Amino acid sequence: MAEAAQPAQGGSKTKLIIIISVVVLLVLGLGIGATLYLTGVFSHKKAGAHATESVPKKPAIYLSIEPALVVNLGPDQPVRFLQVGIDVMARSHKIIDAVKQNMPAVRNRLISLLSGQKYAVVSTQAGKEALRKQVLENINEVLKANGETKPVEQVYFTNFVMQ
């Protein structure tokens, strides 16, 4: 009878080793899965962000507003002149064509904006940057008023002379 008990104990040792191995593998797998989840590998937001980064932007298309705009600065100041060369940037010929088609309205809006500026403000870098943003907004407002849904992306000052 002692001989019959020994093979049974050998089988239970094998079962114990298999159970311990399965438990260790499960704990290891759960640990790896939790680490990957907490580091954001399974995050849908990151996958979407990488997908949009891989899509290349269309090349930039530029249009110079010619001739450069020349205005007198604010009525409450000594006579001062501002000459600004402006280029607009978009990524679609349709938007550039819309700017060309609405150029009289764009120029009118920009002349009104520029002539209301104060010399002390636009002579600073922060003032020029604020003015650049206002120019962009004004151009996009003209386009929107005329049915264009996509805006001009950027505006650049290519010439900025104050006297």
Rank of each mutant, 00 (worst) to 15 (best):
A2Y: 04
Q6H: 07
Q6E: 09
Q6D: 08
Q6G: 02
A8W: 06
Q9S: 11
G10T: 12
G10Y: 08
K13G: 12
K15G: 14
I17S: 02
I17Y: 01
I20H: 00
S21E: 11
S21M: 15
V22I: 14
V27R: 13
V27E: 05
L30E: 06
L30M: 13
G31F: 12
G33E: 08
A34G: 12
Y37A: 06
L38I: 04
L38D: 06
V41G: 08
F42I: 10
S43V: 01
G48V: 01
A51M: 08
T52V: 06
T52H: 09
T52N: 11
E53C: 02
P56R: 13
K57E: 07
P59K: 05
I61H: 02
Y62T: 14
Y62E: 13
S64G: 08
I65Q: 00
E66L: 14
P67T: 03
A68K: 05
L69W: 00
V70Q: 09
V70H: 08
N72Q: 10
N72T: 11
L73T: 07
G74K: 10
P75I: 09
D76Q: 10
D76I: 13
V79P: 01
R80Q: 09
F81I: 11
F81K: 04
Q83N: 07
Q83H: 05
V84W: 03
V88C: 10
V88A: 09
M89K: 14
S92M: 00
H93Q: 15
I95L: 13
I96E: 01
D97K: 12
A98M: 05
V99A: 00
V99F: 01
N102Y: 05
P104W: 05
A105V: 09
V106A: 01
R107W: 02
N108L: 11
R109H: 03
S112K: 06
S112I: 08
S115L: 09
S115H: 06
K118F: 07
Y119S: 14
A120N: 08
A120E: 10
S123M: 13
A126Y: 04
A126F: 05
G127L: 09
A130E: 08
A130G: 03
A130W: 00
L131Y: 01
L131T: 01
R132Q: 06
K133R: 13
N140S: 06
N140D: 08
L143F: 03
L143N: 01
L143A: 04
L143D: 02
K144I: 04
K144F: 07
K144P: 00
N146I: 08
G147W: 10
E148G: 01
E148W: 03
E148N: 04
T149D: 08
P151M: 05
V152S: 05
E153I: 05
V155F: 03
F157N: 09
T158G: 06
F160Y: 12
M162H: 11
Q163E: 11
